[in-house]
Computed example of a mutant assay.
Amino acid sequence: MLNPRLTGRGAAARKYDLLTAMGAFALSQPKATQKTVLRLITLVTARYNWARDELAVGQREIARMWSVDERTVKREMAKLRGWGWLVVKRQGARGRVSEYGLDIDRILEDTRGIWAAVGPDFEYRMKGQPEPDSRVVPLPVRGEVPPPDIGKGDEWALAKAVLHAEDPSVYGSWIRALERGERAGGRLTLIAPSRFHAAYVETHLAGRVLAACQAVDDTVAQVVITA
């Protein structure tokens, strides 16, 4: 199953997968549950500390974020605790807000039934299993793959550094050759050296590439791979 420790190597892609599982689960549920999960996803995306498993936000701030009153916040947070998705790590007292953590194992267990609907590749990845017919095999790269030059400072240069750190072999075989194309709003275009290269990245690595881009620039909403 997906590693519940969402830090370290490959963490960006695992976080993206967890949020995908939560979103897909929400969309399969009645409207009230959809709204609760959407609120949690928004809260996690904006304020959750992944490294420390810490969510410490006051009810007033949450109410502003969710466009609701504090009574609704109390009710929704209680519902999330009841599901087991949120766990109280430290109760608020004397002006300090309550500190919560995510029970990722429980979230994964509750969303398991919807993984296949996202796609077989997603289901195998969430289960920590290789795809039976997977051809995601890095091409051999001679010698050590040097990290990319981040001197340009644009989102793709920084994202390439993230992808290199996660898996130098895959980076050297498939990512390094991708060049930054145009950027239109939240849409970033990457140019591959061939149609095959573009199709391979689009099929097998698109989620990882998007997650890396969003890790360095959260305004990136879509990555298009073209030749």
Rank of each mutant, 00 (worst) to 15 (best):
residue 4 P to T: 13
residue 6 L to Y: 00
residue 10 G to W: 15
residue 13 A to Q: 07
residue 13 A to P: 01
residue 14 R to F: 06
residue 16 Y to A: 14
residue 20 T to D: 05
residue 24 A to N: 01
residue 30 P to K: 08
residue 33 T to V: 15
residue 34 Q to P: 03
residue 37 V to I: 15
residue 38 L to A: 06
residue 38 L to D: 02
residue 39 R to L: 06
residue 41 I to D: 01
residue 41 I to F: 12
residue 41 I to R: 03
residue 41 I to P: 00
residue 43 L to F: 09
residue 46 A to V: 09
residue 48 Y to R: 03
residue 49 N to Y: 09
residue 49 N to H: 14
residue 56 A to T: 13
residue 57 V to R: 03
residue 58 G to Y: 05
residue 58 G to E: 04
residue 58 G to N: 05
residue 63 A to I: 08
residue 64 R to Y: 15
residue 69 D to G: 07
residue 70 E to H: 05
residue 72 T to Y: 13
residue 73 V to Y: 06
residue 74 K to A: 13
residue 76 E to I: 14
residue 77 M to Y: 06
residue 82 G to Y: 12
residue 83 W to C: 05
residue 86 L to V: 06
residue 90 R to A: 13
residue 92 G to N: 11
residue 93 A to C: 06
residue 94 R to D: 08
residue 95 G to I: 11
residue 97 V to C: 04
residue 103 D to L: 09
residue 106 R to W: 10
residue 115 W to Q: 03
residue 115 W to I: 08
residue 115 W to P: 00
residue 117 A to Y: 10
residue 120 P to G: 07
residue 121 D to C: 05
residue 122 F to I: 07
residue 124 Y to H: 13
residue 124 Y to K: 03
residue 129 Q to P: 01
residue 131 E to G: 12
residue 132 P to Q: 06
residue 133 D to M: 11
residue 141 V to R: 12
residue 141 V to T: 07
residue 149 D to G: 05
residue 150 I to F: 06
residue 155 E to V: 14
residue 161 A to P: 02
residue 162 V to Y: 08
residue 169 S to A: 15
residue 171 Y to P: 00
residue 174 W to K: 00
residue 175 I to H: 04
residue 176 R to P: 02
residue 176 R to C: 09
residue 177 A to N: 08
residue 179 E to K: 14
residue 180 R to P: 01
residue 180 R to A: 15
residue 184 A to R: 14
residue 185 G to K: 11
residue 195 R to Q: 14
residue 201 V to D: 02
residue 201 V to Y: 04
residue 207 G to Q: 04
residue 209 V to R: 01
residue 210 L to M: 10
residue 210 L to I: 13
residue 211 A to C: 06
residue 214 Q to S: 03
residue 216 V to N: 00
residue 216 V to G: 00
residue 218 D to I: 08
residue 223 V to N: 04
residue 223 V to F: 15
residue 223 V to M: 14
residue 225 I to M: 09
residue 225 I to D: 00
